[in-house]
Design a protein around this nucleic acid. Structure first.
Length: 304
DNA sequence: TACCAGGTAAAAA
DNA sequence: TTTTTACATGGT
């Protein structure tokens, strides 16, 4: 067991972020939390499956506490992972490095975003533990409804991931590279998507895609690398930038769900074209992605 | 039943 | 070069 303390840059509300995350999941998909203020996540630390729990211990300045349990750790087992590893994993999950204050200053004067950032003060999106996971999820979500994608993803995770303490860690690139396309397709993805996932997993396993170094790259450099992989277009690249890397300014203009949402909230109810999405989001640069996330969360939480 | 849903690559024109 | 088509699940 390892416990570490970490700070969030600027304001943060774990409780609000948990409520937003829950509102994005299909109704009834997650059992009611016994402890709604704790983020509980199955992760892989130094190659070993672990449960990572994050709780907030102070509001301003925002401070969090992360606790890890692995199967091997405990009174008689090996020691848990080193504190830096735990702190890094937890910081990534809660996007601790993102500072919301400049976004709030920009939004303050806006008729919709002003009140919304007030009501959602401290809200950040959780990030997945790895970019590999985010890319696989992007493929699954291509073209089909989020609900259908959710069921397919659950099947893949349970079939190829590692169970620990009632949760399941996302499959490794190695396990998906070894999975026959037929077995992936049995989880509900198309034959072609199974090839995309297998191809990605092989590239990562072979070291041809060094996802770990992508944090340092610019948005456009990452778009180039993502779209060079078969099965990954502009939409998937933007999806990775926003959800996987938390890049605050990515405007997902090709996203059907965003086109529909912005048409309803900012437009006349009709779905917006990609160009109309770009125009609608222009006032929020360099925080266009954050603006979309706040509008989406506000919509899901029935605030707008 | 047919169509749409937070796309993409490959075939056809 | 541009347009059309196939693909999988789940809801309406």
């Amino acid at each position: 067991m390892t416990i570490v303390s970490l700070a969030s840059t600027g304001p943060y509300s774990l409780e609000l972020s948990l409520r937003a995350a829950e509102s994005f999941a299909p109704a009834g998909s997650s059992p009611p939390h016994e402890t709604p203020e704790v983020l509980r996540s199955a992760v892989r630390l130094d190659g070993e499956a672990a449960i990572l729990e994050v709780r907030q211990v102070n509001d301003e300045p925002a401070r969090l506490e992360a606790e890890v349990r692995t199967l091997g750790s405990g009174p008689s087992g090996r020691p848990g992972p080193p504190p830096e590893t735990v702190a890094d994993a937890a910081s990534r999950l809660v996007n601790a490095a993102l500072d919301l204050r400049p976004f709030y200053r920009l939004a303050a004067g806006h008729s919709l975003l002003g009140p919304l950032t007030g009501a959602l003060h401290g809200l950040k999106a959780f990030r997945p533990q790895t970019l590999f996971e985010m890319l696989v999820i992007a493929v699954i979500e291509q073209q089909i409804s989020l609900l259908a994608a959710y069921h397919i993803r659950e099947r893949i995770v349970h079939r190829f991931g590692d169970a620990i303490d009632g949760l399941t860690v996302f499959p490794t690139p190695e396990s998906l590279a070894q999975a026959p396309a037929q077995e992936l397709a049995e989880c509900g993805v198309s034959r072609r998507k199974a090839e995309y996932i297998g191809g990605l997993a092989e590239l990562v396993t072979a070291g041809a895609l060094d996802l770990g170094s992508w944090e340092q790259l610019s948005d456009d450099e990452i778009r180039d690398r993502v779209t060079a992989v078969r099965g990954f277009g502009r939409w998937s690249a933007d999806y990775l930038l926003i959800r996987g890397l938390g890049r605050p300014d990515v405007a997902p203009a090709d996203d059907l769900g965003i086109q529909t949402l912005l048409g309803r909230i900012l437009g006349d109810g009709r779905r917006l074209s990609p160009d109309e999405v770009r125009s609608a989001l222009a006032p929020f640069a360099p925080f266009r992605g954050l603006a979309v996330f706040y509008i989406l969360a506000g919509s899901r939480l029935s605030l707008i």
